[in-house]
Design a protein around this nucleic acid. Structure first.
Lengths: 234, 234
DNA sequence: AAGGATCTTATGTCTATATATAAAGCCATT
DNA sequence: AATGGCTTTATATATAGACATAAGATCCTT
């Protein structure tokens, strides 16, 4: 059996608990001993045990409720965590050079779908941008973006010809809320042209909407070059 | 200015720190005061400040190094977190009934791409499954899966006609490692048929490989019905 | 200057203890 | 039975203090 030696760090305790879950010593849905009992078993303190269990709960292995105790989740809700890198970094890591180009910049009244989606006034002025991101000479990502100047007036003065709107926004507007979607879309004419592929090709796409304290700031649709895959380990 | 009153919880401290970052009181790349100084300012203790800063670092706002101190990340590496739900739950939540069907089950020698991808012996026997998941009457997900019996012999006895391999595996083999990819694929003949769409349609696809202590267990390709989008908020 | 050895310091972690709080369980009342 | 209040208990969080450790800073030697 797991040997509870003294001087166990919270990491050690996490490992032991995880092992016991894996080995069904603590079966799914079953209740763990209380922190006090575990602290005694591991000759540790409640504080340390608490940290171990708290982190395991955050990682989706356990469920904790006051008074009710700590129980093993039967369907471990594994949480995949993606770091959302700046595109520049993502490309640099592959060894390729990052290059940015502004394709179009226009102010226009918000189209109907946009005002509905972002919950802004019908016909409200928005800034519309189209950009390209290259890895070396290869197209990497085609970006369409709408920015709401109501929420951030300086944007009308911003120069997006040398660096992308994401860079500018990250600097200027530390968002408070983000909705992020992944989906597969079919390349339309401009997407196909810019990503150097055929109309109709499947394109991995992400959509982001960000808010600054309940004011919608921007919606971006990012179309990745064919073959792109987003990968994470856990 | 932020009023450092007494009795601040670690949550309060997190909020104050976050506000100061947003308001550029602590600019990107700048160094925060030490935990001791902050504890003094907030009339709190180092332990509490530590927890606040540690969590903000985990959330990608700060970078902490021993001796070097705590600094504000200029490009906040926001981390998107996806809970990976069991498909049954995902469907139930929409209000629809979940239905599962086994399409094919076969033992076969591992094809070349699979042994390469999963790092298993050439021609090693694997179990190949194809399954469908329905939300009500609508096709929701088409699944192809390979399981390595070497890593988990009982799988050859398992009955996958009533419940999916994922359910069985989650019960039987609590995986220790997972590689998860998202990509867009083009529907081939079987995918199109089962998902009731046209060949060539873009399909949001996830691939999962799981290991049990460095032994590869299973590879699954999950093809979602057209229109599916995976969304998260943060 | 360049390279090491040493000092210093900010974070990392553990211990021991105390108070706060949510919620389950119990009991008495209606 | 259902309701409402009380008790109990497990977790949540705060405090104070200690030692551990990584790594920047400094000084010393060559």
């Amino acid at each position: 059996m797991a040997a509870p030696r003294a001087n166990m760090s919270y990491r050690d305790i996490k490992q032991v608990v995880l092992d016991r879950i894996h080995n069904k010593i603590w079966a799914p849905d079953s209740l763990l001993p209380s922190e006090i009992d575990l602290a005694a078993e591991f000759s540790s303190t409640r504080t340390t045990v608490n940290r171990a269990l708290r982190e395991l709960a955050e990682e989706g292995y356990l469920e904790r409720k006051r008074k009710a105790g700590t129980r093993v989740l039967n369907a471990p809700v594994r949480k995949a965590q993606f770091a959302i890198p700046l595109i520049r970094d993502e490309i640099s890591e592959t060894g390729a050079d990052y290059r940015y180009a502004l394709v179009e910049r226009a102010a226009m009244p918000a189209p109907g779908w946009l005002s509905a989606r972002m919950n802004i006034a019908q016909g409200c002025e928005v800034l519309y941008l189209r950009c390209m991101h290259y890895a070396g000479n290869a197209p990497f990502q085609y970006e369409t973006r709408w920015i709401v100047p109501d929420s951030i007036p300086e944007v009308l003065e911003a120069d997006f010809s040398c660096s992308g709107p994401n860079d500018w926004l990250v600097q200027k507007v530390p968002f408070t809320n983000l909705e992020l979607s992944f989906l597969a879309t079919k390349a339309d004419q401009p997407v196909a042209e810019f990503l150097d592929t055929q109309v109709g090709e499947p394109i991995f796409t992400t959509e982001r909407i960000t808010w600054l304290r309940s004011k919608p700031v921007t919606l971006a649709k990012l179309f990745f070059a064919p073959g792109y895959r987003m990968t994470t380990h856990l």
